[in-house]
Simulated assay, not measured.
Amino acid sequence: MELINFKVGCKTISLKILDILLTERFDNNLTTLPNNNKSFIGVKDYMDIPTPVFDLGIILNNISTEQSNAHVLKQLRTWQEKLLNWFNTLQSNLLNSSASISSNDAELQDFVLFYKEFNTDNEDLKLTMSRLNEPFQSLLETVKEAISAHNQSDYKQVSALLEKIKRSNLIQLERLFESAKEQITLDYKPIIVFTTKDGLNPHVGLLVDKVEDNIDYKKEDIKSLDKLTEVGFDLDPQTKNMMRGLIKLSQKHSVLIDPSVIFKPTQLEESESEETQAYGLF
Rank of each mutant, 00 (worst) to 15 (best):
L125H: 02
N88E: 15
D48L: 14
R131Y: 04
L125S: 02
I63E: 11
F87M: 08
L132A: 00
D45P: 04
Q137W: 07
I63D: 08
M47P: 07
I58M: 12
T142W: 06
N119Y: 06
V72I: 15
M129V: 09
V43P: 00
K44T: 00
N122G: 08
N119K: 15
E66I: 04
K44C: 01
F118C: 12
Q109S: 14
T78V: 02
K116M: 12
N96D: 11
K74Y: 12
Q67A: 13
S92G: 11
N119A: 12
K82T: 04
L132F: 11
S64K: 02
E123F: 13
W79G: 03
E141H: 10
L132C: 07
S100N: 12
L76C: 01
S100P: 02
N69D: 10
R77S: 11
S100V: 06
L95W: 06
N69W: 00
L94R: 02
Q91A: 12
T128M: 07
L94C: 05
T142K: 05
E81I: 00
L127Q: 13
T120C: 08
L76G: 04
A99L: 14
I58V: 15
L76H: 03
T120L: 06
N61E: 15
K82E: 10
G42Y: 03
I101M: 13
W86P: 00
N37E: 13
Q137K: 15
D55V: 02
P50Q: 08
A106K: 14
N62Y: 06
T78P: 03
W86R: 06
N122V: 01
S97P: 04
G42M: 01
G57E: 05
D105H: 10
N133G: 08
L132T: 06
F136L: 02
S64W: 02
Q109H: 12
T51Q: 06
F114M: 13
L140D: 02
I101P: 04
N61L: 14
